[in-house]
Nucleic acid binder design. Structure first.
Length: 1148
RNA sequence: AGUCCUGUAGCUCAGUUGGUUAGAGCACUACACUGAUAAUGUAGGGGUCCGCAGUUCAAAUCUGCGCAGGACUACCA
């Protein structure tokens, strides 16, 4: 009987024909727009409770990929979660607009190269093209942002090319400058003398840059100074030899710039006695042991005979050699040698040059294991020399400025003398009058003549070439502006230790190690589209000015105008102090304008801006301040900590040395603060085979396709729950399908089930809550689990573990709520009147669904909002308009009953085991059985199982449970050692002890259980006492019964089917058949029927004895046994093997 | 080359301070259930826990050395 509670029509829970997540997303998107939900989710939270989040700016000149959905889902989840927790979470979007990819994109589009800039296209037009190109895909990005449900304020983003942003960047640079943290120096960079420009690593890595070339390579002999001679003479016991180091180079032109030799401390070196193949002079060379046979090949022949060395003459077919001493690399470090080619001396600390130093990069794979170091022409060389305090080969030019031995055109400087001065170091650089002998050859000949060459030969290797001129590049020292991050190293490390890294290893490992090995930050980039370095210098470099604001620049320009240096003022219309957009649109801080600004020095000289732009990473690292135009506006946001540092940021792990570093470095150096408290570095999204996605391989996944096909919710849920954010995700579409079916399908089904019956009964949650104590066991159980879930999910979110949160929710929904609670409670919803028990069931299920919707909303924002609204539209329990405006549920610890959760777990296990037994014996569940027997495990066991016995019996269709006490002596038991307890006690004897315990018979087990202890005899005849607690005793068998065991739990089943049980079974079969027929006939769940069954002797008794039961179950007003059933609505049924009959029903 | 991550069933992933039968979902096979039905349950098959060595009474788990995949950084005489 279903009694409608109310007569008046009420609003119904929305019922759906099916689950279509993309449609849900579209509908919800419309609602959010209409209701300004995002805006409200910020404004409804108090300003004094901020959760600060920074959006890492993407570059809008490329299209978004599926990995952006991943990264942004992570950001979104925690912002939404914190909103639910009552925080105000402002999320300002941002665009990274400067940098090389933009320039290259524009050049490709316009069909120009860098050389055209300033020639066929003005810098101004070029920059204008960049400004447009960079926002090319803004619409696509905005579309993705919206469709994937990422809430970020796209209406008022920060844009790195805007004047206000750039002004803040300048202000920070000025602050670092004032702190003495900026200096001009040089680094070794790829440089193309033919093109007269430095090359970025990006350009070097273009396909075709590296080519195989044949160069003259020289293996040269470096004569040790006196200390070294003595040391080796002592080692070998030979005072007559001249000891030399031997080192190899493919670029002999760098030998005049040699200032050090590097050895590996750990490598074994040997001293070899032999003769020079070109001059025949005796020699004793030091090289790596592993490379002796490689170097002494060809004419050389190992020979231990002294006479071979006395009798050797130049021109002999074979040259003898032998090892006369062995030592470690570390023994060589610190000795000095004579300069190989003494053209000039380094201007700085020449006494420290020509020294043997240690370098970890030195290997014994080729060469000699001794590496020639020319700090002016090799990046590694410069670094290792600097670390060792060895000066680079820089000499003073006419003005006294340091210069290398090769000029910017690639020619030796005049100081190299008549012979080499003015020559190009590579013959490829000559456009005419190319000499026969290249510099490499000339130097090699010189070495041979001077007895300094061990070997000269052609060597083929791969070498980078300039993609514009096709000529080989040089590694060349170029002027750059640096930030002295090494000065802040200790502080950077200390502050990093206060950051919460997810995962921790990225913070301590990759990032921590990076900080430990920090280099100064090279700020300079020879580009066009970016933030200009705001430093103006006089030509001689003696006077210098760093500008930190537009206002400052304007007054400097005015001074320059007054001095007559500049003719007009590009900032004429700028009004200092006016922060309006209009005012800030009256000028442009980009290079094309700033290069025209010539200031005047205090001494009245003109000052030109330093040519370079700054590294774009500095742009994005400045965003905490620049996004607010700090300190010119919003000073309080930074100074009062309202928007700094961030509570949370998240980006890909590839940003570790990018954005994560620049944020940290700038915050530390400029503000002595961290920039973020917690950071997630997420992994990559790979294809399903673990390959990196790329357009080239065609395995890139189109994010829009996924969103349109499965909706954002399923896509996000899949990505978040499948792998931890910091592990790489193997993206597999079938995984989304699974999530859709398994999680969303189940949740949808659960809601549909609720809605169907709640609508029938008119449940709208207007009744007072049924007190917990009056709710049935299963309600209290699921409520207890729900409250435990709240605690766990809250903790997981708070700890930035979204995967854990999602998996917990999913498990609750599919296993506990749907598969256990709903499955066991189905009858309560459709059976009986609208009374307390039914109300309790509705209230319980409602509460679970609503709570799940809030817990899951951060991950699946669309569907969960629909669920939340569908529930509340009728019940109006939660006054929030949207799930995203709701408060995160509070767990009520008084509702958590761990004993109850244990009881239910027992019930589930007993049920599962019993069903297993039925299956084993092929007894269908509809056939009632009489009895289950369960051995008692401990003192609480009987009570616990008794409290859930109704549930078990109903589920497995058995009539009673009998508990078996061990005293009855019918149980066959099994005993095992508890290794965890006995292991520490017995150590090595453990194996022996375990074997002895395993060997116990039933009598010994019983003895142990009775007395709580037992003695065993050890191998050495000593006796040890084992107590009850140190072993695990389980019931293995109950003779005569059908038994299942799982851990310590055992269940036995009585499988005798009495006549009465058999009849009940048949009755249940009929109920089932009638229900099927009802359903197939399209009857409503509330319709009443009249039933006719064609009589058979085999079933008559069963039906008569269970008539009331059958009628009640099927809502039948009458049930007749008739001799013949025919007519339309009848069905042939087989109730039991061999028993066939016909049934018919009609609606009354 | 350096730093870091990952490696467990056919696939995607759990696996606690080391403790003796290594788990789940998907897929597969069989059986059952049927007023949630584009669902559900039960059972089954399926494992060199990447390899080797070590520590330990005991290793998927700790240590070392490798292998494979990936990321970042640096690119060499």
């Amino acid at each position: 009987m279903h009694v409608l509670k109310k007569d008046c029509p009420m609003s119904k829970y929305r019922e759906y024909k099916g689950l279509d997540l993309p449609v849900v997303a579209n509908e919800m998107l419309e609602r959010w727009k209409r209701e300004n939900t995002f805006e409200k989710s910020v404004s409804s939270r108090p300003e004094n409770k901020p959760f600060v989040f920074y959006e890492g700016p993407p570059s809008a000149n490329g299209l978004p990929g599926i990995h952006h959905v991943m990264g942004r889902a992570i950001k979104d989840i925690f912002c939404r979660y914190k909103t639910n927790k009552g925080y105000r979470v402002e999320r300002k979007a941002g665009w990274d607009t400067h940098g090389l990819p933009v320039e290259l994109g524009v050049e490709k589009e316009l069909g120009i190269t860098k050389e055209d800039i300033g020639k066929t296209i003005s810098v101004e037009a070029y920059n204008e093209a960049c400004r447009k190109a960079v926002m090319k895909y803004t619409d696509v990005w905005n579309d993705l942002t919206e469709k994937m449900g990422y809430w970020v304020d796209m209406d008022d983003p920060y844009v790195t090319y805007e004047n206000k942003y750039m002004e803040s960047v300048w202000w920070i640079l000025r602050r670092l400058y004032d702190k003495g943290l900026m200096y001009k120096g040089y680094t070794i960079q790829p440089y193309s003398p033919a093109a007269g420009t430095g090359l970025s690593s990006h350009e070097i890595n273009q396909p075709g840059s590296y080519r195989m070339v044949k160069d003259t390579s020289a293996t040269a002999l470096f004569k040790l100074k006196e200390d070294g001679q003595k040391m080796l003479a002592t080692l070998t016991g030979n005072n007559d030899l001249t000891y030399t180091m031997v080192a190899w180079t493919t670029t002999p032109w760098t030998l005049p710039s040699n200032t050090a030799l590097a050895v590996n401390k750990k490598v074994d070196y040997v001293v070899v006695e032999s003769f020079n193949q070109y001059t025949g002079s005796p020699m004793a060379v030091v090289l790596a042991k592993d490379l002796v046979s490689y170097q002494f090949s060809g004419k050389y022949e190992t020979n231990e005979d002294d006479s071979a060395y006395h009798e050797f003459n130049l021109g002999d077919k074979k040259i003898p050699y032998r090892i006369i001493g062995t030592l470690k690399g570390t023994d060589l470090v610190g000795y000095y040698y004579e300069q190989l080619l003494p053209y000039v001396l380094p201007m700085e600390t020449p006494e420290k040059a020509f020294c043997i130093i240690a370098g970890d990069f030195v290997t014994t794979e080729d060469g000699t294991g001794v590496v020639h170091i020319a700090p002016t022409f090799g990046a590694d060389d410069a670094q290792v020399a600097k670390a060792a305090g060895v000066p680079p080969m820089l000499i003073a030019d006419a003005q006294g400025n340091p210069i290398p031995l090769v000029d910017l055109q690639g020619r030796f400087v005049d100081a190299m003398g008549d012979e080499l001065g003015g020559m190009y170091v590579k013959n490829e650089y000559y456009t005419e009058n190319e000499p026969d002998k290249s510099v490499d050859v000339l130097i090699s000949i010189k070495l041979k003549e001077e007895n300094k060459a061990f070997k000269i030969e052609k060597y083929e290797h791969s070498y980078p070439h300039c993609w514009r001129t096709d000529k080989p590049i040089l590694y060349y020292p170029l002027d750059s502006w640096f930030i002295k991050s090494t000065a802040a190293k200790d502080r950077l490390i200390a502050l990093n230790k206060t950051i919460n890294w997810k995962p921790e290893s990225t913070g301590t490992g990759r990032f921590g190690n990076w900080l430990e090995n920090l280099n100064d930050w090279n700020l300079s980039r020879s580009r066009f589209w970016g933030v200009p370095i705001p430093i103006w210098r006089t030509e001689d470099g003696t006077e210098e000015l760093c500008i930190g604001s537009v206002e400052e620049l304007k007054s400097a320009i005015v001074a320059s105008l007054n001095a007559g240096i500049m003719k007009e003022n590009p900032l004429a219309d700028f009004v200092p102090g006016d922060m309006s957009e209009a005012n800030y649109n009256t000028f442009d801080l980009h290079k094309n304008y700033m290069d025209n600004v010539v200031l005047v020095s205090p001494k009245g000289k003109p000052m030109h801006r330093e040519q370079d732009l700054i590294d774009v990473w500095f742009d994005s690292g400045s965003m905490p301040y620049a996004q607010w135009h700090y300190p010119f506006e919003n000073k309080d946001k930074i100074d009062d900590g309202k928007a700094f540092p961030a509570d949370f940021i998240a980006e890909g792990v590839d940003q570790t040395r990018g954005w994560f570093f620049t944020l940290h470095a700038i915050a530390t150096m400029a503000f002595d603060s961290i920039a973020y408290k917690s950071v997630i570095s997420n992994g990559l999204v790979l294809d399903k085979n673990g390959q990196k996605m790329s357009k080239r391989l065609g395995n890139a996944v189109d994010p829009f396709l996924m969103l349109n096909k499965y909706g954002a919710d399923a896509t996000r849920w899949y990505m978040i729950t499948n792998a931890q954010p910091w592990d790489n995700l193997r993206f597999d579409e079938s995984g989304i399908v699974e999530v859709q079916r398994k999680f969303f399908g189940t949740l949808y089904n659960t809601y549909s089930f609720f809605a169907l019956y709640a609508n029938v009964d008119g449940f709208d949650y207007s009744e007072n809550d049924v007190p917990l104590s009056e709710k049935p066991e299963i309600d209290r159980w699921v409520i207890s689990r729900l409250n435990s879930l709240i605690i766990d999910v809250d903790a997981a979110y708070a700890d930035y573990e979204p995967t854990k949160a999602g998996r917990l929710i999913q498990n609750f929904v599919t296993e506990e709520l749907s598969n256990w609670y709903v499955r066991l409670c189905r009858r309560r919803f459709w059976k009986g009147d609208y009374e307390t028990d039914k109300v309790a069931a509705y209230q319980t299920l409602y509460t679970c669904l609503e709570t799940v919707s809030i817990l899951s909303a951060p991950i699946a924002p669309f569907y969960m909002d629909q669920l939340f609204r569908d529930l509340n539209v009728v019940a109006d329990k939660n006054t929030a308009e949207s799930v995203h405006l709701a408060e995160f549920p509070e767990s009520d610890s008084s509702k958590i009953d761990l004993d109850l959760e244990r009881r239910m777990s027992l019930a589930q296990r007993i049920t599962s085991m019993t069903l297993g037994l039925r299956k084993l014996e092929k007894i269908r569940v509809r056939q009632p059985l009489q009895k289950l027997m369960i051995p008692v495990i401990d003192k609480d066991f009987v009570r616990q199982v008794t409290e859930v016995s109704d549930m078990i019996l109903r589920e497995v269709n058995v009539k009673e449970i009998e508990f078996l006490n061990e005293t009855e002596g019918i149980l066959v038991k099994e005993i095992k050692a508890d290794f965890k307890k006995l292991g520490p006690r017995f150590g090595k004897q453990m194996k022996d002890v375990a074997a002895r315990i395993n060997a116990f018979g039933q009598a010994e087990i019983a003895d142990l259980e009775r007395n709580g202890k037992i003695e065993i005899e050890m191998g050495d005849a000593s006796r040890e006492e084992i107590i009850r607690d140190e072993v695990l005793i389980t019931t293995k068998d109950i003779p005569g019964w059908l038994v299942a065991s799982e851990g310590e739990l055992t269940v036995a089943m009585d499988i005798t089917i009495s006549e009465q049980l058999r009849e009940e079974g048949i009755a249940r079969e009929f109920v089932n058949r009638i229900q099927n027929l009802r359903k197939d006939s399209g009857l409503d769940v509330t319709d009443k029927i009249a039933v006719k069954i064609e009589s058979r002797a085999s079933i008559e008794q069963a039906i008569k004895n269970n008539l009331d039961y059958i009628c009640a179950e099927t809502l039948a007003d009458s049930l007749e046994l008739v001799s013949k059933v025919n007519g339309g609505n009848s069905l042939e049924v087989e109730v039991e093997t061999g028993i066939e009959t016909r049934i018919a029903l009609e609606k009354i």
